[in-house]
Write a protein that binds this DNA or RNA. Sequence first.
DNA 1: CTGAAAGCGCTTACAG
DNA 2: CTGAAAGCGCTTACAG
Lengths: 342, 342
Amino acid sequence: MPTLKDVASEAKVSLATASLAMRGKPGVTSATAQKVRSAAKRIGYQLNASARSLRSGRSGILVLIVPRLSIPFYNHVAEAVAYEMEKAGMQAMIQQSDLFAEHERETVGRIASTIADGIIYNSTRLDDESITALTDQRPVVMIENFAEPRTLDTVNTPSQEGMNAAVNHLVDVGCSRIGVLGRSPEDTGRASQLSSISKRTRYDAALAAIAHAGQDLEMAAWPDPVSWSIEDGRKAALELARQGLPYDGLVCMNDMMALGVLRGFHEAGVKVPRDVAVIGFDGIQEGAYNTPTLSTIAVDYRGLAQASVSLMMRRLDQPDDKFMPQSIRVGYELIKRESTAR
Amino acid sequence: MPTLKDVASEAKVSLATASLAMRGKPGVTSATAQKVRSAAKRIGYQLNASARSLRSGRSGILVLIVPRLSIPFYNHVAEAVAYEMEKAGMQAMIQQSDLFAEHERETVGRIASTIADGIIYNSTRLDDESITALTDQRPVVMIENFAEPRTLDTVNTPSQEGMNAAVNHLVDVGCSRIGVLGRSPEDTGRASQLSSISKRTRYDAALAAIAHAGQDLEMAAWPDPVSWSIEDGRKAALELARQGLPYDGLVCMNDMMALGVLRGFHEAGVKVPRDVAVIGFDGIQEGAYNTPTLSTIAVDYRGLAQASVSLMMRRLDQPDDKFMPQSIRVGYELIKRESTAR
DNA sequence: CTGAAAGCGCTTACAG
DNA sequence: CTGAAAGCGCTTACAG
């Protein structure tokens, strides 16, 4: 494979000039730059990213880590964040942290030891401190980090406001016994883990909204832990039906669970929204095509992506700034669909 | 940040010994290796991947490129392939090629210029030749590459067999007028493009299966091009209903389209499967929770991932082999659900 | 089994 | 505006 040295001799300039010219840096006449570039093209030159990175300490690569890509919320985030990374002129790489159980710590370490200029982190089992230690100097932006104290730049979904809007919507359509589905199994015990804190934050926000609406908290909380999966949503709905449907309105912690709930109610012969109104959280595309279509609190994915990447670029461009980490809460939209239309 | 040199002096050994020890290579006593490793841990050493890659020509990174992650088929593939990559001891990185229009060529080029040891490519606008030129020497495995001639290792979904099974299933449940939905818009004109070839392959396979079942091809083909999106599926169903439902069985080119079709029929008051049976292709999880649940030809994602990665590892391990590219067709499973239960 | 030395392909002061 | 030289942090023959 041809190197920059080959380009330089092909263009009859020095190595330094070739390097400058290829990157469009000042200090080279445009005629020379043109000459170099066409020489590079002629011999099929490709930059060796490792060499650049080793020498300059910059790779131009930004890594995004999400738990797993088959979960709609995360692949929506991944798509949006990668788009913004590329728009900022960086190369976007995506990694999954949840492929192997208890594997995340290692992944972060390996990433850190890799060529990323910075890392955007969505949902993890590690706290700020461990992440900082593992990534060592490289800027990190967290998505969905509700742990305190916060030592890293963070972009969060609007748990409180969104859950308020969800509950108020159910009240508006006439629900008087609102339940909350999605107390996460990790809630007890390993509560220091980030993902469980962020789950709990959303869950607590829903409870608070219900209390604020003057409803009975005792009844509102679904007592059993349920993972936020579509299958657990289905099972929970079957169980609720078996119990004689204690609620006429149901707030689900995410859309996947809500879709499972709608399926479960269908199987149990419970009519949505007639017997019970259901609302989700996230705003994944599938909700718009389900029967019934799913009402939801749609997270502003684009806003979330833009905020994360601009936080990252700022740290990259001004590495000497010692400002305390920022915390951004993105917007949401209440989307009213069939599952709450009554 | 501490370097390997620091580790060596901390452990009081030479640089070479430290390097060998850290990688568990032979030529170091286990006592020395132990000493080096604990020294590394003590001073918080992290490997500089760029330096290793520059020197050894190997980064340990494998890149997977898919069009976009919000499409279930692709994020299922991404998750499965990344899992197999990690299992093979490589670091998995995922890139999207479709974020910007006409952007794919550039992405490949940038990837190639990056640190990947190899690239697994799912659905692209480029043909084998351009990809080979852009990736320059690095092994490439294609997923869904139906172009001929094939100069790269390839793993394909079972278009022919799967479509046969789908059509036969519809015949089995009593359909006598089977339609095919999903002639792709790019079919005419830019037919040399890979993704349109692979789409056409699936489409043609469905038509062939229908002809083989002795049905009327004239009627079977949905004449208008339809993208394989959920929204276009919905629109097509509405249009079919408007035309008085010329089919009693419908083969959809993928599950997303099929989910849109189910929604469209629901809106139009058409009952599935009573009025028309619907079957999809891909086997995405959402189909199992829709109402009605979606019958489908489930692709063996795991088999597809294992095949792609083992093809890749073989080329990596035996770079001098000059065997012609292999072509692997993965398995499928006919999953019978409510949408064809009659 | 261990150590000294060369070199991977770039970028970046520095000198002219 | 252009060129010669140093060096980023590793790995890999090679010698002892």
